[in-house]
Structure formats: structure tokens, C-alpha cells
Design a protein around this nucleic acid. Structure first.
Length: 679
RNA sequence: GCGCCCGUAGCUCAGAAGGACAGAGCGGCGGACUUCUAAUCCGCGGGUCGCAGGUUCGAAUCCUGCCGGGCGCGCCA
């Protein structure tokens, strides 16, 4: 369909050349605000008219005359409107036939081309995941799905910061406050991440007044950095157990990873020291002899665009005690990710899903695998880390042999906070600062937040109640599956329906809603499309594919669509082959404008996916899927399919229902929203 | 102080790279289930697109200034 728009745009371009002698770039294809204005709109006459000093309306008339004389594929007629818009009216039958033919073409066969890394989740492995982390993982997972849909080879990374203070604090709690050793920590009951959530808050509070504990934290950090000593042993158990919990939580949502990269390995396997040597050789890194940062290795950022207004733009990479900072290790990881450093890693299996997907982890032992060395990459990290990410981007670009600056993208998004109402309902004590604010920021340190598993559990239980009410006879197994599917839909849709730059003020009541613009609404529409075809199979013994190929087997109707499909003809009186003229007649009727609108929506699919990828905006897909579901629900009420007596009307509606089912399911799959059997 | 982001209906948000009467969901009011499932659909009410200038044939959209809100600017991560 994209090409059809391009074809028409090119026709307009030609018309302009013929009429005015002006060579213009391919004109922008607009969407008219109302159906009376046609299907495509061009403003060239307005732009050009003023430029050439000619009345736009008159110029438009000449262009229309030219365009009307010269046929353009897919265009039935042209009209002039308003101050001088050129409006094209599609040949509706032709477009529908083309739409049907395009349905199975946009699915990527096998991934090929340069590899793209999507890094997401990367939660500090010291506590349970909360809904802010969920936004990250869901956005990242959806992005990966979008890229895969476009045939891009995607590698999903989850970066594990196993050597930082966050882990150290929990180790401190387990060892010093609870008196546990590694073995005891290993045998703590689940949910381990919940226990650590509380412990982390407790330690944070204690550290404020307990100087002895604060001193101990320093030792723990050193132990973690070096990977030596009993604290490091405990730390390793904590990290491993927490990561397993995080992956279980994400698996509930259908989110999987290809590789876990441990920050500790970056140091122990000399990835950092190699990177450091490279950086030192460049002009971007220098040793500070004096002043505030005396004894530190610094990254030079003064003079770099974006940093010029900072008071002290340069950034510490190596502390005066010789330890690399978080950014430094992150830079090393990114350099490795983009193939700027030799790969020192070996890989072991970390886990395997029921479906057989393996998550690997980097380390000193295991087998060689072709991870890393990507052409492009996205780091899904919230906008609060924009400053650090820009430093990483500068470092990566400075190391690139070709000087490319577009290889690394910080996929930034705003945070998830809590509405005061929800914070209150959860019993979170509000500080006086919080009182007057529009939302309450979550904080792992203070234990303020909604845990991801808690949200999923509440959604699941609520879904279960709803299902039982509507469908009391459902067997327990199906009930369980369905409740979880609905919970996934509700959670995933809620976290991607906002644009990236919108702070989500999480409101439990809104999130628990299953009506209106929600994930379950999409599922309901998808289930309904399915039930039509199920009924058709039961009553007539005709499968969907048979039905569609029957209708499209008329002269000209398919225009190559379903050409591979066998021309099955359903029984007399149920469906009949339609000709191109019949499609035109049905869709041309004024009262069928709703059907035509749906056809146009469906035709947008590929363009919508492109837009979503280009703008890295998953909400575009969410809105689109919602629009499809909405259009279908309207159609469902207004236009019965199986009951419709006129076989021509019936046939067209069936085609649209089929196309809709296909596209809606695809869109939902891009969002990771499952389609239930029934609801 | 400097930088980035945001300000659109009572509430929560879209607005497809400047276009033709500003949209959706929720909430409110009123309707539609012997019909392919009412987690649905239909109707009604509701907006000086924060304010002021500017660019343009045309601005919610681009530019400048101001007001209001959020976030960031560590030898933490």
C-alpha cells in the first residue's frame, strides 16, 4: 500500500512538471480529515501557487485537468477542494483486492542484514522488580518484536550490575544484620526478591545512623569488585537468585533475553583494561594531576556539543583509588557490544524456557558464541540517565573507526510514578514534600513502589473474577490460562499506551480497568473475529481460508491475491466469487463508508510499523491496534456477516473481517499481547 | 544557576513531521442483549490547545520571551 501512495505522489509530481515546468520533490501525501474529501490529499497547489505568484485554486484546476486525463493506478477520480487541495479518490475495489493480497507479504521470512542489539531491563540485582522496571522491559521487548518483524536480526541483552553499592547494601543486610553466610542465603525461601526488597530499605535506613555499618559497606564493595572473600560469595548468590526471580517475572509477560552480561566480568576478564588502554591512547581521556579530581583518569567532555554549558563537564572514569566507575565499565561494555574490542567472553546457559529459548550468560567458562559485534544498538534506559548515556555515546563514537555517531541510540522514556491516591491506598507514607506534588516518585531505597509481580497477581485475580462471572463452566485449567493472558494484556497495554516522554502517574484503579482503551479490549475484539469464523466452520463447514479464496476467485477481484491458494468454492447460497466491479459497487455505497474506513485503516499497517520503528515509539502500535479493535467492534454491531442475505455484501464484509483479524493479531503480537481462544 | 522534557475536555492522554469544523478513553446523563459473546455498541453534554509576540497563504504543531510543573547536572549506580 505504501507503494500505491508513492505511485499517486509521483503522478502528482509529474502533473506539476507538465503543467508548470517546475521540478518538485515527491510531494507529501496527506490524509484528508473527512471521507467527503477523498482518500489522499495534496497541498502542492497551495505551496506552489504562492511561490509562483499564481492563484492556487487556478493552478489546482489545471493540475486536476491533467491528472484526470492521465490515468493513475488505483485512483478513480480527482477533486479540488477548499483553497486548492488536490484530493484523490481511490478505486475502492482495486484497493481492497490489493489489501487482501498484501496481508501475507509483510511478514519477515528470515532475519538478515546487520545485527542490532536491544538492551533492556538491566535492573539492579538486589530487590524485586517494580512497575517502573516493567515499563522498561515491556518497551524493550516490544521494540525487539518490532525490529524482528521488519526482518532485523535482534540480540536482546540484559546488563547485570553485580558489583555496585545496591548489591553491597543487601549483602550487608544479609551478613551483618541477619548473620547469614552464602549457604544460608542460598536456602532462604522464595520470594527471595521480596525479602531483599524489605531488607534493602532496612539497610538504607540503618546506614544513616550506623557508622560501623557504613564502614563495613566499603569492605563489601571492595570484595564484590575483586570477586574475592565471603561477601563476594554471598553477593554472587544474591545476584543469581534475584536475576532468576526477575527473569521469572518477565517470563510471565512473555519477555525473554538472549544474553546476560555481568559487569563483574567486564573487570575480571580485562575488558575494561583493554578498553582503558584504547581510551588512554585517544585524546579524550587524560590523567588529572591537580585540583578536585587529582589522581583520577578523566574523560574530556569540554568542547563536546551538548556539554558546553556544564560547569565541570569532564567525567571521572577511574577514581583516585584505581577503581573504574560505573560509566567506565558501561563504556567498555558498549565498545564490546559494537565490536570495538576483541571478545574475551565464553558463554554458559543461564536458563531455558518451556518453549526452548535459551538465555546465555557471559563469563570466564563455557563455549564460544557469536554474541556482540553489533552494527547498531538500543539501550532502553529511563530519561534520568540521559547525561550518563550521552557520555557513553560520545565515548563509543570517538572509538568508532569510521567516526559514525549513529550506531548507538539511547531509547529514553519517562519514569513511572504513583498517583497520590494509589500511594495512599498502598499505605505508603507521604513526606511533606510529596503532599503538594502531582505524583509520588518510586524509590527502591525507600521501598516506595508497586512490585511487578504484585501488579500481575492483582490483575490476574481480577481477570479470574471477571471470567468466572461470564463463563462459569470454564474448566480450571483454561480459567487459569485465560486469567493470566488477560492480566498480561492489561499490564502490557497500560505501560505502552503512553508516549515515551509522558511520565506515567500509575493509578491502580485505571490499570485495573478492563474496558475502553485497554489490553483486554483488544483481546475481546480479536476473540470476536475468531468466533465469526468458528461459527462459519460449524454451520457451513467452510474454513476461513476457503471462504476468503472463494470470494476472491471472481474476475479481477484478487488481482493476484491468494493466487497460490486453491480456488475452493463454498456451497451455493453461502458464498460466491465476487468480481472487481462487485467489490467496487459495495464499497462505493455511501452507507458502507464505515467498511471503507476500515479498509483504509488496515492498509496503513506497514506504514504504522515503519513509523513506530523510526520514532522508536511503541505507543504508535498500541494506538493503531486500539483503532482497529474499535473499528471492528463498530462494524460488528452494524454489519452482521453470516446473517447478511445479500451475498455480495456478505462477501465484502467477510474479506474485511478476515483482514482485520490478521492485522489485529499481528499488531497484538508486536505488543506481546496474547490472543485468547475465548473470553 | 545551566540543560532536557512537559503544559490540549472534569480526569488520564492522542494529535501520523505546518494544512481543510481540535480527537480518544475514563467519569456524567440517556438508550441498545430471544440476533456472529453487552469486557460491546449508539446518542448527549464538555476545550480562549498555559500566556504574549513572531514566521507563514495557513500554527496545538516551527521561532522568541514569560508563567507553571517534572527530571538531570557526584571519585553512587
Amino acid at each position: 500500500m505504501t507503494d500505491l501512495r508513492m505511485t499517486v505522489a509521483a503522478a502528482v509530481q509529474d502533473a506539476v512538471a507538465a503543467v508548470t515546468g517546475e521540478r518538485i520533490p515527491l510531494p507529501h501525501v496527506g490524509d484528508p480529515p473527512r471521507p467527503e474529501f477523498g482518500d489522499l490529499a495534496f497541498a502542492v497547489a497551495l505551496e506552489l501557487g504562492h511561490k509562483l505568484g499564481r492563484p492556487p485554486r487556478q493552478l489546482a484546476e489545471e493540475l486536476i485537468a491533467y491528472l484526470t486525463e492521465h490515468d493513475t493506478e488505483g485512483v478513480q477520480r480527482w477533486e479540488i477542494a477548499g483553497p486548492g487541495f488536490l484530493n484523490a479518490f481511490f478505486d475502492r475495489g482495486f484497493v481492497l483486492g490489493r489489501l487482501m493480497g498484501s496481508l501475507h507479504q509483510s511478514v519477515s521470512e528470515t532475519a538478515q542484514g546487520p545485527k542490532v542489539v536491544v538492551e533492556h531491563t538491566s535492573i539492579n540485582p538486589n530487590k524485586a522488580a517494580h512497575i517502573g522496571h516493567l515499563r522498561n522491559s515491556i518497551l524493550g521487548d516490544s521494540l525487539a518484536r518490532l525490529l524482528r518483524h521488519q526482518g532485523v536480526p535482534v540480540e536482546v541483552h540484559n546488563y547485570i550490575d553485580d558489583t555496585g553499592v545496591q548489591v553491597a547494601d543487601v549483602v550487608l543486610g544479609l551478613v551483618d544484620l541477619r548473620g547469614l553466610d552464602a549457604e544460608a542465603v542460598r536456602s532462604m525461601p522464595d520470594p527471595f526478591d521480596y525479602a531483599c526488597w524489605d531488607l534493602y530499605t532496612e539497610v538504607t535506613a540503618r546506614l544513616e545512623s550506623d557508622e560501623r555499618l557504613a564502614a563495613r559497606r566499603h569492605d563489601v564493595l571492595v570484595s564484590l569488585e575483586r570477586g574475592e572473600g565471603t561477601d563476594a560469595e554471598v553477593g554472587a548468590v544474591v545476584v543469581e537468585r534475584i536475576i532468576r526471580r526477575h527473569l521469572e517475572t518477565m517470563a510471565r509477560l512473555g519477555i525473554e533475553y538472549d544474553l546476560l552480561v555481568h559487569e563483574g566480568d567486564i573487570v575480571s576478564m580485562d575488558l575494561w583494561s583493554t578498553a582503558f588502554e584504547r581510551l588512554k591512547a585517544s585524546e579524550h581521556v587524560y590523567f588529572s594531576e591537580e585540583g578536585k579530581h587529582s589522581g583520577c583518569w578523566m574523560m574530556r567532555l569540554s568542547g563536546v556539543s551538548g556539554f558546553e554549558d556544564l560547569e565541570e563537564p569532564d567525567k571521572v572514569l577511574v577514581r583516585s583509588n584505581g577503581a573504574a566507575t560505573y560509566v567506565a565499565k558501561d563504556i567498555a561494555y558498549h565498545m564490546w557490544r559494537y565490536g570495538e574490542l576483541d571478545n574475551p567472553f565464553l558463554y554458559r546457559k543461564f536458563s531455558e524456557s518451556e518453549a526452548g529459548h535459551i538465555t546465555w550468560q557471559s563469563g570466564a567458562e563455557g563455549e564460544k558464541m557469536p554474541f556482540g559485534d553489533a552494527d547498531h544498538g538500543f539501550s532502553v534506559i529511563d530519561v534520568r540517565q540521559a547525561y550518563l548515556q550521552s557520555i557513553v555515546a560520545v565515548a563509543v563514537a570517538s572509538m568508532d573507526p569510521d567516526g559514525r555517531t549513529d550506531r548507538h541510540t539511547h531509547f529514553d522514556y519517562e519514569m513511572v510514578a504513583l498517583t497520590p491516591r494509589t500511594a495512599k491506598a498502598l499505605g505508603i507514607p507521604l513526606t511533606s514534600d510529596d503532599q503538594g506534588r502531582p505524583f509520588v516518585e518510586m524509590s527502591g531505597r525507600r521501598g516506595v513502589g508497586v512490585k511487578a509481580d504484585d501488579l500481575l497477581n492483582v490483575l490476574r485475580d481480577r481477570a479470574r473474577d471477571e471470567v468466572m462471572e461470564r463463563n462459569p463452566d470454564l474448566p480450571e485449567g483454561e480459567l487459569k490460562t485465560l486469567a493470566l493472558q488477560i492480566a498480561i494484556a492489561a499490564a502490557r497495554y497500560f505501560l505502552v499506551k503512553f508516549t515515551r516522554k509522558t511520565v506515567i502517574a500509575f493509578d491502580l484503579e485505571d490499570a485495573l480497568n478492563f474496558e475502553g482503551e485497554t489490553g483486554p479490549y483488544l483481546q475481546y475484539a480479536a476473540v470476536r473475529t475468531g468466533s465469526i469464523f468458528e461459527r462459519m466452520q460449524d454451520d457451513w463447514g467452510v474454513s476461513v481460508e476457503e471462504a476468503v479464496s472463494t470470494v476472491l476467485s471472481g474476475p479481477g477481484a484478487g488481482s493476484g491475491a491468494f493466487s497460490g491458494a486453491e480456488r475452493v468454492v463454498a456451497a451455493d447460497g453461502e458464498l460466491e466469487p465476487l468480481s472487481l466491479d462487485q467489490l467496487r459497487d459495495v464499497l462505493g455505497e455511501k452507507e458502507n463508508d464505515t467498511l471503507w474506513d476500515l479498509a483504509l485503516q488496515l492498509a496503513r499497517f506497514d506504514r504504522v510499523v515503519d513509523l513506530a520503528v523510526q520514532s522508536a515509539e511503541v505507543s504508535v502500535i498500541a494506538k493503531y491496534a486500539f483503532t482497529l479493535a474499535q473499528e471492528f467492534n463498530r462494524l460488528y454491531h452494524k454489519y452482521p456477516i453470516l446473517q447478511e442475505e445479500d451475498l455480495t455484501e456478505r462477501g465484502v464484509r467477510l474479506l474485511l473481517a478476515y483482514a482485520l483479524r490478521h492485522r489485529l493479531r499481528q499488531a497484538m503480537s508486536l505488543l506481546g499481547i496474547p490472543v485468547p481462544e475465548r473470553m
